[in-house]
Nucleic acid binder design. Sequence first.
DNA 1: TTACCTGCAAAGAGTTTGCAGGTAG
DNA 2: CTACCTGCAAACTCTTTGCAGGTAA
Lengths: 138, 138
Amino acid sequence: MSDNTEFVKKLRSVGLRPTKQRLKICKILFDRKNTFHFTISDLQKIIKTKIEEKVSLATIYNTVHSFKKKGYLKEISINSDKSYYDTNITNHHHFLDEETNELLDLDDNDISNLKIKKTIPGKKIKSIEVLVKIANNN
Amino acid sequence: MSDNTEFVKKLRSVGLRPTKQRLKICKILFDRKNTFHFTISDLQKIIKTKIEEKVSLATIYNTVHSFKKKGYLKEISINSDKSYYDTNITNHHHFLDEETNELLDLDDNDISNLKIKKTIPGKKIKSIEVLVKIANNN
DNA sequence: TTACCTGCAAAGAGTTTGCAGGTAG
DNA sequence: CTACCTGCAAACTCTTTGCAGGTAA
């Protein structure tokens, strides 16, 4: 937390200079126990609320994109007007609550051994993402 | 084809009047053997190319949304700047080729019996969508 | 000092909406 | 005739880009 060394290393490893704006973004994204699902505007609101200083949209996009490229953030495949990101970069899937639009993690082993039986010549599988849409039980 | 009766019925069943613009959209969407994955702008281009007459964007959006609401089209969950739709409304999944950005159908039984072991109290599963990202084999 | 970064504002892309004239029933 | 529909353009939202001043190394 007060130890920014880890965040400085993280930023350098993606080729970004550790500026104070980026360190704040790091703190919000990575200084937490639980998985965090967010959109860019969620992140912007949190920065505005929790932190005395403003960080411009351009900087937020740029930083999030760099983390995503390096694999420190995952982009979640749901159809939405916005892009959703996830700080949980392990192999896992999602519930999407259609009522509240909330995302919930679904562990890889909460799914019976998922296997794709069809193959495409000359192509290999890069990732498998499962989205389970849920709604109220009535 | 020359028999529009089916399309007229389809349009009425979603609460839309069978206008000539909408019948053209129907012809493109539903008068085909194979599944059709498209974006609104794909559809617009096809209309412009194959059909002598112009159909406005507003009409295309409105018609596609009505079909989707009624379940005659499925929206595919991928993260993209655009929305993708699918004329295959059976239970199935997709390959997404990361090289070409093309979508390919993946039959439900091309996936080993998919089962979600985790449940959320008070919620039930509405749908399960699997997206398999593929890329060149090198 | 140099290369990179920031904030701002403008520009882009996809989608939605308001409205005046047109058409199905 | 009435309600609904069409095309157009403007408006909106999210995202990207250009640029002038600022900062890390």
